[in-house]
Amino acid sequence: NRRVIAMPSVRKYAREKGVDIRLVQGTGKNGRVLKEDIDAWLAG
Score class of each variant (00 low, 15 high):
G44T: 15
N1D: 15
R2Y: 04
G18Q: 09
Q25C: 10
E16P: 00
P8A: 13
I38S: 00
G31W: 04
N30P: 02
G31E: 06
E16L: 14
D37N: 06
A14I: 01
T27G: 05
G44R: 15
R3K: 15
E36M: 13
G28R: 02
K29W: 08
V33L: 05
R11P: 04
R15M: 12
L42Y: 06
T27Y: 03
I21E: 02
G18F: 08
R32P: 02
G18L: 08
K12H: 09
A43Q: 12
R3C: 07
K17C: 07
G26K: 02
N1W: 01
V19T: 03
K35L: 11
I21S: 01
V33C: 05
A14K: 00
R2D: 14
E36I: 13
R22C: 09
R2S: 10
A40F: 11
K29F: 12
A6W: 02
Q25H: 12
A14Q: 00
V4I: 14
G18A: 07
A43E: 14
K35F: 09
V33E: 00
E36K: 15
I21Q: 01
R2C: 09
A40K: 14
R2L: 11
R2M: 11
E36G: 13
N30Y: 13
D37F: 00
K12M: 09
K29Y: 11
G31I: 02
E16Q: 13
V19N: 00
K29E: 11
I38A: 00
V24G: 01
D20N: 10
A43F: 09
R22N: 14
K35S: 07
R11Q: 08
V4N: 07
E16F: 11
K17E: 06
R2W: 04
G18V: 04
A6L: 03
L34H: 07
K17I: 08
A43T: 13
R3E: 12
Q25S: 14
A43I: 13
T27M: 05
G31K: 07
E36P: 09
A43W: 09
A14F: 01
P8G: 10
G31F: 06
P8D: 10
K29P: 12
R32A: 14
T27Q: 05
A14S: 06
K12V: 07
I21F: 04
E16H: 10
E16I: 12
E16D: 14
R3N: 13
W41D: 03
I38E: 00
V10I: 09
G26Q: 03
R11C: 08
V33A: 03
P8I: 11
V19F: 02
T27R: 07
V33M: 03
A6M: 04
R3G: 12
G26H: 03
I38M: 01
L42M: 10
V24Y: 01
L42E: 05
N30I: 05
I38D: 00
D20V: 05
A14W: 02
Y13L: 05
R2P: 13
V4D: 06
G18H: 11
T27A: 04
I5S: 08
Q25M: 14
G31L: 05
M7F: 15
L23K: 14
W41V: 07
A14N: 00
R2V: 12
P8L: 09
A40R: 15
T27I: 02
K17L: 13
M7A: 15
D20M: 05
G26E: 02
W41G: 02
G28A: 05
L34S: 10
R15W: 15
N30E: 11
G26N: 03
A14Y: 01
A40P: 01
G44N: 15
G18D: 08
R11E: 06
W41S: 04
I38Y: 00
I21M: 06
R15Q: 13
A43D: 13
V19K: 00
N30L: 11
R32F: 08
L34R: 11
R2T: 13
I21K: 00
S9V: 09
R15P: 01
V33K: 03
K29G: 08
Q25K: 15
L23S: 10
Q25N: 13
L34A: 05
Y13R: 06
G44H: 14
V33F: 01
D37A: 01
E36Q: 14
D39C: 05
K35E: 07
V24I: 13
Q25Y: 10
V19C: 07
G28Y: 01
K29S: 10
I21R: 01
D37G: 01
K17S: 09
R2K: 14
S9A: 14
V19M: 04
D20L: 06
K35Y: 08
R11T: 05
L23R: 12
M7I: 12
D20T: 04
R32D: 07
T27F: 03
R2G: 11
K35I: 11
G28Q: 03
K29D: 10
R3L: 07
R3I: 14
I5D: 08
Y13I: 09
D20H: 06
D39M: 05
G31M: 06
M7G: 15
G26V: 02
L34M: 12
V33R: 02
R11M: 08
N30A: 10
R22V: 07
V4P: 09
D20I: 05
R32N: 08
A40V: 11
A6Q: 04
L42H: 05
R32E: 14
A43S: 13
V24R: 01
G44F: 14
I38L: 04
G26C: 03
Y13W: 03
R32G: 08
K12T: 08
D20E: 07
G44K: 15
K29H: 11
M7W: 15
N1P: 15
R32L: 09
V19Y: 01
L23M: 12
D39S: 04
A6G: 05
R11D: 04
V33D: 00
D37Y: 00
M7Y: 15
V33Y: 01
G31D: 06
I38W: 00
D20Y: 05
Y13Q: 06
K29C: 09
I38T: 00
L42P: 03
N1A: 14
G44V: 14
W41Y: 15
S9Q: 10
G31V: 02
L34K: 11
G44Q: 15
K29T: 13
E36L: 11
L23T: 09
V10L: 04
T27E: 03
G28H: 03
R3M: 08
G28I: 02
L34T: 12
